[in-house]
């Protein structure tokens, strides 16, 4: 019994051994270019993402924010007509040119999409899916993880009596929180969020935003958004993109109060 608790603690608090060097970059993109069949989607991207901060990718739609986000855990593999060159270092490992198994690297990152896409299984099954892939079979551990991560996203009290029901029976806002929880369950270091509140009602959006602020103590968050006010509420670090290029980046205060380029000034004033 004691041993189980110890293992549990080990799993639940994976970041205790960090502590120092919190501001070192966790993601470094160097000279990234992405080409589709007949266009260049990202042009020479250089980017450092600070650890345990919320980094916001800002810019009008179609400027390559989502593509950049998907490059970070190589979901671009799914699209055979995309071609990538350059380097993306995550924990000092170039994930675009690594012989290592990509599935392990992907588990370092939790993904939250524009709309919730619950896996076709039960509520609890959504949480345990990634854990089972990791080889965790112990029922007690799985149950404890389900509860912990559902509590993390403030969903536990709403669903604790129907964990075995289909995840599709939840409301959209609940589904999105479930998607966040299942991403956290595999203990990522980074959360990739692609306009995670764009399909949600104001209250669910607020819950997600509050979660993010809490989560940045333990995780590094990269958030794509085109909602300027959301960016202002959440961002520690801002990357402003326009037509596949990074136009300006810096600390949130600096970017919002003191924009240097005309493009960013225009964007901040008009919102597009």
């Amino acid at each position: 019994m004691e041993q189980t608790t110890a293992t549990l603690k080990g799993i639940i608090h994976p970041y205790e051994h960090y502590g120092e060097g919190l501001t070192q970059p966790i993601v470094e993109v160097k000279g990234l270019n992405v080409f589709s069949k007949n266009a260049q989607i990202l042009k020479n991207i250089h980017l450092s993402v600070p650890k345990n901060k919320i980094t916001v990718l800002l810019g009008p739609s179609g400027c390559g924010k989502t593509t950049l986000l998907k490059c970070l855990n190589r979901l671009t593999d799914l699209y055979s007509d995309l071609r990538l060159d350059g380097s993306i270092f995550i924990d000092n490992e170039d994930i675009l040119n690594t012989p290592r198994d990509i599935t392990e690297i992907r588990q370092k990152m939790g993904l939250l999409l524009q709309r919730p896409f619950p896996l076709p299984m039960s509520i609890a099954g959504n949480i345990t899916y990634g854990l089972k892939l990791k080889g965790i079979r112990n029922k007690k551990i799985l149950e404890a993880k389900v509860e912990k991560h559902l509590r993390d996203v403030a969903l536990w009290d709403e669903v604790k009596d129907r964990l075995s029901h289909s995840a599709n029976s939840l409301s959209i806002g609940q589904q999105q929180r479930l998607c966040l929880a299942r991403g956290l369950a595999v203990e990522p270091e980074i959360i990739l969020a692609d306009e995670p509140t764009s399909a949600l009602d104001p209250i669910s959006s607020k819950v997600i935003e509050e979660e993010f602020i809490k989560l940045k103590n333990d995780y590094t968050i990269i958030l794509v958004t085109h909602i300027l006010r959301q960016a202002k509420r959440l961002a520690d670090y801002v990357v402003f993109m326009y037509y596949g290029e990074i136009v300006e980046h810096g600390d949130a205060e600096e970017i919002f109060n003191n924009p240097k380029t005309a493009l960013l000034k225009h964007y901040l004033e008009s919102g597009y």
């Binding site: 979901l75 999409l113 896409f117 896996l119 892939l133 991403g183």
Partner: peptide, 20 residues
């Protein structure tokens, strides 16, 4: 996107096909 979700949780292509 369902496939993206499954892959990002650490599944391989075949696991994604089988389970999702």
């Amino acid at each position: 996107e369902l496939q993206e979700a499954s892959l990002s949780l650490g599944a391989t292509r075949w696991e994604t096909i089988k389970h999702i």
